[in-house]
Design a protein around this nucleic acid. Structure first.
Length: 541
RNA sequence: GGACGGGUAGCUCAGCCGGUAGAGCAUCGGACUUUUAAUCCGGUGGCCGCGGGUUCGAAUCCCGCCCCGUUCACCA
């Protein structure tokens, strides 16, 4: 499906019907009629299914205007949403006696999603955000002229209808129309009424078509929105303040990731779209905030697939005087809360896997998990080459440029993560993997870090925040060395952040949660693109 | 970037061991005053993703390219 071609077509169609000529409206309409019947107008003579469907609708638009009606209204005063109207009738039914079937007057509005014409009566289904209702239009009820004019309505149009809400003989809740008016004309054909819109490329590139054709898509996004609300209210009720920090970073920081580069004209400077808000949020702890969080976008210039979108949403929270174990308890509470609130029970299915939201979650050190699931011991093996040999022995591919930390990470992703179906925390990671985490008490080779996993998806990352400015500088320098050795994902040395740590940051724990991945899990969506309204696809085409 | 699958009417899909491009829905015309995937009759609608090649003849076979999906690689 070529978007460009579509645009072109629609432009030429607009030109055909452009009111810029000196002809009167009447003449234009005549021309349109002529187009329809003879097809000999040179500009619109071209056939083509989509063009023709469009011309039919433009002709209807002309007719509506010709009779002095406005096909794009300004307001419509509804008495009820469709959902409210349905609920009201149902509650009236419970109290009504059998001889007097309940009914009440209403003015409803919505998009026409189905039409069944039977000579002098017509049934339509209209839909608003709250639901769908059948509308009955009878020639006797609305009048001959108005009934004739329903022929200028199409699926996709918005209409407003006044009448009486009651059930038909067959028991369908129906708005029996007395008066109707068009509120907005649709010029494009609708998707197939039974199968909906299945082409994922169109669904992702033109989400509005997806939402119109596949109403269940909206429930996915409603769940996402609600999940974020539950998270936000959990955080607020635990004393966290929501803040906003920059998207434009002079130095990308807070995560090992490749950034997007942009440019500011007035400053004539290079900026990076943020890869993580971490360093700014910690600066707030330095400044005296004790519990802060931010729910916002991060941007990473990396591979795109079913679990990675170039821009994605994270929640990051920082809590002074807390450590990673305390934060682990809080994370468990918050995520359990979120999942239960959205799925409505203690268990649910994600892509065929039964997930139990029992508490407490399983907690394993990273090295215990590797021993348990990969059958090798990388903890007592500090030597890089020995670790590489062990990893290879269980079929994990190891390249010469991988250091000890990277090897551990690789074994974890390959051999451990696929087993983490039930909510699980892994904790205590090698220091090489975590340049912003505090060293573990009693074991400087490790950091106090944990990650929650659900349905084999990594949904977060947390640690006791490194607040020793000397250690932090050394970690940054190690990253810079990696960068100079060619690792373009290694982190930068951020002098301003080090200055902040030197001013003094209280002991603190911090957590990041991948909102999109959580949304995938609670909506049983296989792809991240199913939970992002407008996912990034390759432009153009 | 590699492998595999896909791209045919506005939508959902057949056709793919070469021989005039199909169905259902939508749309247009006709019948029809309680349908709800309404029904019945008749019509319109196609650069078969794009570009080359093979062939008397290509939606179909071959090559290249574009886009989408899955997966691996990469990556939190």
């Amino acid at each position: 499906m070529s978007v460009k071609a579509k645009t072109k077509q629609c432009k030429s169609a607009i030109i055909t019907h452009s009111p810029c000529s000196q002809s009167t409206q009447m003449e234009q309409n005549k021309m349109t009629e002529q187009d329809l019947h003879t097809g000999d107008n040179p500009e619109s003579a071209e056939k083509g299914g989509e063009q023709e469907l469009r011309r039919h609708r433009l002709a209807k638009l002309d007719r509506i205007r010709q009779r002095g009606d406005e096909p794009y209204k300004y307001v419509f005063d509804r008495t009820h949403s469709i959902g409210d109207a349905r609920n009201l009738l149902e509650s009236m039914e419970k109290e009504a006696d059998e001889n007097e079937p309940p009914a009440f007057p209403a003015r409803l509005a919505g998009r026409i999603v189905a039409r069944r014409v039977q000579g002098k009566s017509t049934f339509m289904d209209i839909r608003d955000e709250s639901g769908r209702i059948q509308v009955f239009l009878g020639e006797k009820q609305v009048g001959e002229v108005a009934y004739e004019e329903t022929k200028d309505l199409d699926i996709g149009d918005f209409i407003g209808v006044s009448g009486s809400v009651k059930k038909t003989r067959r028991g369908e809740i129906t708005l029996f129309a007395e008066v109707y008016e068009i509120l907005a004309k649709s010029l494009r054909p609708s998707a197939e009424k039974y199968h909906g819109l299945a082409d994922v490329e169109i669904r992702y590139r033109h989400r509005f078509l997806d939402l119109v054709a596949n109403p269940e898509v909206m429930t996915v996004f409603r769940k996402r929105i609600e999940m974020i609300e539950v998270m936000r209210s959990w955080l607020r009720s635990h004393g966290f303040l929501e803040v906003e920090t920059p998207m434009l970073h002079p130095i990308p920081g807070g995560a090992t990731a490749r950034p997007f580069i942009t440019h500011h004209n007035t400053y004539d400077s290079q900026f990076y779209l943020r890869v993580a808000p971490e360093l700014y949020l910690k600066k707030l702890l330095v400044g005296g905030f004790e519990k802060v969080f931010e729910i916002n976008r991060c941007f990473r210039n990396e591979g795109v697939d079913g679990r990675h979108n170039p821009e994605f949403t994270t929640m990051e929270m920082y809590e002074a005087y807390q450590d990673y174990m305390g934060l682990m308890d809080e994370t468990e509470d918050m995520l359990t809360h979120m999942m239960e609130a959205i799925v409505g029970s203690r268990s649910f299915v994600y892509q065929g896997q039964e997930i139990e939201i029992g508490r407490p979650w399983k907690r394993l050190t990273l090295f215990d998990a590797i021993r348990q699931y990969a059958g090798i011991d990388l903890e007592s093996t500090k030597d890089r080459d020995t670790a590489a040999r062990l990893a290879k022995s269980i079929g994990v591919e190891i390249t010469p440029d991988m250091g000890y930390g990277k090897i551990v990470d690789e074994v974890m992703s390959e051999k451990v993560q696929p087993n983490l179906v039930q909510p699980t925390f892994l904790y205590d990671y090698p220091w090489e993997l975590s340049p912003l985490a505090k060293r573990k008490r009693g074991n400087p080779e490790l950091t106090e870090r944990f990650q929650p996993f659900i349905a084999c998806l990594e949904v977060g990352n947390a640690f006791s925040e490194l607040n020793d400015p000397i250690d932090q500088r050394q970690r940054f320098e190690a990253q810079v060395a990696l960068r100079e050795a060619g690792d373009d994902e290694a982190q930068y040395l951020d002098e301003d952040f080090l200055t902040a740590l030197e001013v003094g940051m209280p002991p603190a724990a911090g957590l990041g949660i991948g909102i999109d991945r959580m949304a995938m899990i609670v909506t049983n969506s296989p792809s991240i693109r199913d939970v992002i309204l407008f996912p990034q696809l390759r432009p153009g085409v």
